[in-house]
């Protein structure tokens, strides 16, 4: 942990060397989800609702997933940009150091400009929380917090999977976008607007539904007699998701060390 903070400081120093670029990127990162949100706003202006969900409910959904995504892109950027590391042969360097590969990869890159994105989704979150028809209490706020946390873990897990893929091929990484960008795009709306196969896949395989849609039902009081506790605990599935991803990662490292490619 200590070492991670050292990496953190070092990367911040590095990125601050290019101030103009840094701010330009921050602003750009702020507006990327902003235009998406604006698009969503206009659609609600025209249609009023989506399968019975109103604007602020969906906005909350949007904010949770975008917050998770931006935190993950900031902190786990090392895995996201891992292909560069492999192509340049820098992974060898990591292997000759007496620390875990995961920690070193995390420390290899942190993208601070994603703070712009985080700001935008935080604003949407606050706006939605204040306008939504929910009596907020301690449990609901805690659930909200864990929704974001679970989301961070899921995205990180996917990044790790994509990075592990680099050990076999650095081509075709685009397919990971289905789960990162695609997952983000999809999970910004409540899951039940989609068809069955999508709902199933994103609940049982990649548990976006568990950090977003299901606990949201509890917060909004739409759980229809289901156990509240169960719905509250759902984000834990997101956190557990990272375990198999780490296993795949270690398998990938083993493969790399036997083929060297």
């Amino acid at each position: 942990m200590n070492l991670y903070f050292k990496y953190f400081r070092m990367l911040l120093n590095s990125q601050m060397q290019y101030r103009a670029s840094f701010w330009l990127l921050c602003i750009g990162q702020f507006f990327t989800p902003f235009v998406m949100f604006a698009g969503m706003y206009f659609l609600f202006e025209r249609f009023g609702q989506i399968k019975g969900w109103d604007f602020f409910e969906v906005a909350l959904c949007f904010a949770v997933i975008h917050m998770a995504f931006s935190i993950c892109e900031c902190l786990a950027r090392g895995f996201d940009s891992f292909s560069n590391l492999v192509i340049k042969g820098e992974f060898d360097r990591i292997l000759v150091r007496p620390r875990s590969t995961v920690l070193q990869i995390l420390g290899s890159n942190i993208e601070f400009t994603r703070v712009g994105r985080l700001m935008q989704s935080a604003i949407v979150l606050i706006w939605a929380v204040r306008n939504i028809a929910v009596d907020w209490d301690f449990f609901k706020l805690t659930t909200l917090f864990f929704m974001v946390t679970g989301g961070v873990f899921i995205f990180t897990g996917i990044f790790i999977l994509a990075a592990a893929m680099c050990f076999w091929t650095v081509q075709g990484l685009e397919v990971a976008n289905v789960f990162t960008d695609g997952g983000k795009e999809m999970a910004q709306y409540p899951l039940n607007i989609y068809q069955k196969w999508i709902i199933r896949f994103f609940t049982y395989v990649i548990p976006f539904g568990c950090v977003n849609y299901l606990p949201l039902l509890y917060i909004l009081g739409k759980s229809n007699g289901g156990s509240d506790l169960l719905y509250m605990m759902m984000p834990a599935a997101g956190i557990l998701f990272i375990l198999p991803c780490l296993a795949v990662w270690h398998f990938g490292v083993r493969h790399y060390r036997s083929t060297g490619s």
Partner: peptide
């Protein structure tokens, strides 16, 4: 002018 490829692309792309 900006000397920041990522920044320029991002702003153009968003707008």
């Amino acid at each position: 002018v900006t000397m920041s490829p990522a920044g320029s692309t991002l702003i153009f792309a968003v707008v």
